[in-house]
Simulated scan of single mutants.
Amino acid sequence: MEITFYKYQGTGNDFVLADNRRNHCSRLTEEQIKHICDRRFGIGADGFMLLNEKEGYDFEMVYYNADGWEGSMCGNGGRCIVKFANDLGIKKNRYVFLATDGPHEATLEGDAVSLKMKDVEGIRKYKTDSVLNTGSPHYVQLEPDVMSLDVVKEGQRIRYSKEYTDEGINVNFVQVKEDGSLIVRTYERGVENETYSCGTGVTAAALVFHHNDNGFNSIDIETIGGKLNVRYHRELDGSFNNIWLKGPALQVFKGTINITGHD
Rank of each mutant, 00 (worst) to 15 (best):
R185P: 06
G190K: 00
E167F: 07
F41P: 00
A18E: 10
V152M: 08
V131D: 11
G135I: 02
V62C: 09
E194T: 00
S114E: 10
H211Q: 13
Y160Q: 06
V96P: 01
I123E: 09
G238N: 09
G201V: 11
L28K: 04
F173C: 01
Y160A: 02
N193Q: 09
G199F: 00
D263F: 05
D111N: 13
L149Q: 08
R231E: 12
I33R: 08
C74N: 04
D119K: 04
T195A: 03
G199Q: 04
F84L: 13
G56D: 06
L250S: 14
R21Q: 12
R124L: 12
S218V: 08
T256M: 14
Y63N: 05
N242E: 11
Y187N: 00
D213V: 13
G155S: 03
S239F: 09
N20C: 05
E2N: 15
I33Y: 09
G180M: 08
Q251N: 13
Q9R: 02
I123P: 01
S161V: 05
Q175Y: 06
F59R: 10
I36V: 12
K7Q: 11
T134V: 15
G71Q: 00
E163L: 15
G155I: 04
H262T: 08
F209W: 08
E188I: 11
T100M: 07
S218K: 14
Y196F: 10
G47Y: 02
L88H: 04
S181M: 04
Y64E: 08
D220H: 12
G190P: 00
V176G: 02
K153S: 14
L250N: 15
N76C: 04
T203N: 10
F84E: 12
S218M: 14
H262N: 11
S136L: 07
N52C: 12
F97R: 05
K254Y: 03
F59L: 07
C198R: 00
R27Y: 08
N242Q: 14
K177Y: 02
D19R: 04
Y160R: 10
S239Y: 04
N212R: 12
I219H: 01
Y164I: 08
V120M: 09
V140W: 04
D263V: 13
N93P: 06
S161L: 02
T4K: 15
D150I: 08
Y160H: 15
A45G: 09
L245G: 02
E154D: 13
N212I: 10
D119V: 03
T186H: 02
K83M: 07
G199W: 01
L51H: 06
Y232N: 05
G10V: 07
V202N: 05
V176D: 00
R40Q: 12
V96W: 01
I3P: 05
D213I: 13
K118C: 14
V202P: 02
R22E: 15
Q9A: 07
M147Q: 13
L28R: 02
E143Q: 13
K116G: 03
S114L: 04
G42T: 06
S239Q: 02
A99Q: 12
G180W: 05
Y139H: 10
G168W: 06
A106H: 01
S130L: 03
C198Y: 03
Y160D: 01
K118H: 05
G122N: 10
V191G: 03
V96A: 09
